[in-house]
Amino acid sequence: MLLQVENLQATVADKTVLKGLTLNIKAGEVHAIMGPNGAGKSSFASVLAGREDYEVTGGSALLNGVDLLEMEAEARAQAGLFLAFQYPVEIPGVSNKLFLQTALNSIRAAQGLPELDMFEFSQLVQEKMKLLGMRQEFLERAVNVGFSGGEKKRNDMLQMALLEPKLCILDETDSGLDIDALKAVAQGVNAMRSSERGFVLVTHYQRLLEYVAPDVVHILYQGRIVKSGGMELIAQIEELGYDALAAAA
């Protein structure tokens, strides 16, 4: 099992946000987690990624059998977890190039691989950018500073392509995106789908799922997964709404 989450409970600012969440993901699968506002979708992504303002009060989360919850945020990333942010952060003065190279080399170092020098890194990043249809100037700009919403998400996709994580969590990556940017995100995900990698698409809307077909759809409601199924669940959500589906579950 790639990701094994068992009865996960967590609080943020004394508010309980996860109330016993259980979820299993096999390598090669794409899971969509849908739910209304405040259901705990972003909290789940944050807890897995190791955001410090969240406190885990119970349960477990294993990535390839390794306890994620014991690890620092950077160690989780080094172990192959990737969080695409709902709101990618701007970092003035740090060039995208330096950021990407440092990130990649930190992860390589943790895996016992030699660091890539400037030349090797440049070659690799150029390739990935070409695949994502990104321009060279992207590298010279400060991380996310002055980027449009779409550019920020593309930047996250570039990071994902470069770092080649084992499990990618996209936290409402589709919110506020125009159709072109949405397609770019979908293209990024589809290009990286493989039998060794898993995806969790946390989303509010079904728009993204029109472009990335999930294997499993879950409904997260009041801090728990209350229903799981296939694509047919999306139609039910459209028809009945979350409250009714949760009540019937």
Partner: peptide, 19 residues
């Protein structure tokens, strides 16, 4: 900002230094 860098595998100390 620190968390963003750490979430990409960059150790906290290094992230603070970069910023």
């Amino acid at each position: 900002q620190i968390f963003y860098l750490r979430a990409r595998g960059i150790p906290a100390e290094k992230a603070k230094l970069m910023i």
